[in-house]
Amino acid sequence: MARAVTTRHKTIATIAAWIVALLIFFPILYTIITSFKSEQEAIAGFNLIPSGTLESYAAVEAQSGYFKFFLNSVILSLGSTVLALIVSVPAAWAMAFSPTKRTKDILMWMLSTKMMPAVAVLFPIYLLFRDAGLLDSRIGLTVMLMLINLPIVVWMLYTYFREIPGEILEAARMDGATLWGEIVYVLTPMAVPGIASTMLLNIILAWNEAFWTIRLTTINAAPLTAFISSFSSPQGLFWAKLSAASTLAIAPILIMGWFSQKQLVRGLTFGAVK
């Protein structure tokens, strides 16, 4: 029997959701507020009303040149996402529709690579990049970001594909569809919400990745994570500038997340309720 949802329950749930959301969002909000303060205001203590100065943004732009880093972030996150989809759509298709007795093991093995601390392979990867001439190159880092996010992408797509009835693909085959046609014209359109949310999540993960993007770059391929890192100071208080740098770095992904939240939620909950 379905439980009756009263207005009172709805109100409590809404308030609780807002409180949790605000708690999660507050550090970001305070970073944004601090970015509009002077350095003196920033260290003066807790204050939600900034003077509205833009001096930190001017200083940050003058010191580091935001757009070069921004462009690299865009190229790396989009490039690695496209590359990851090219590799993972066929892989997920194979595992979802032609599983073998080892499919589960392969999936678990792929996921297990995410459990290894990145620093454990820093030296081998650095040497490989050095020998291949890929240090501080966008190509090298795009491939690296694709590889580290690949297990998650394959897993997500595999989960979505499993929700699609195999009979539809069989019907396409009976109508004469080739393997390529089956994936491109039948499977992909049906999995668009899943692919879209996987894409969005991968873009966010690649945008925020801060271990490899800082360690494998210097000048040419450094993205916004390196940009933020440059504003952390061991001796001296530059909180307003650091906040301005952080705001500039997270703003694009925050805006993208805001506009695509419907797709994200739909994709993430796809197949959760049957």
């Binding site: 820093l122 030296f123 050095r130 360690r215 061991p234």
Partner: peptide, 21 residues
């Protein structure tokens, strides 16, 4: 290239130890 102190130390050590140049 401006980096946080500990990151710089680790980054430079890796590069020098591997002769990354």
């Amino acid at each position: 290239v401006t980096l946080e102190e500990n990151v710089l130390r680790e980054r430079v050590t890796t590069d020098i130890a591997t002769k990354g140049g």
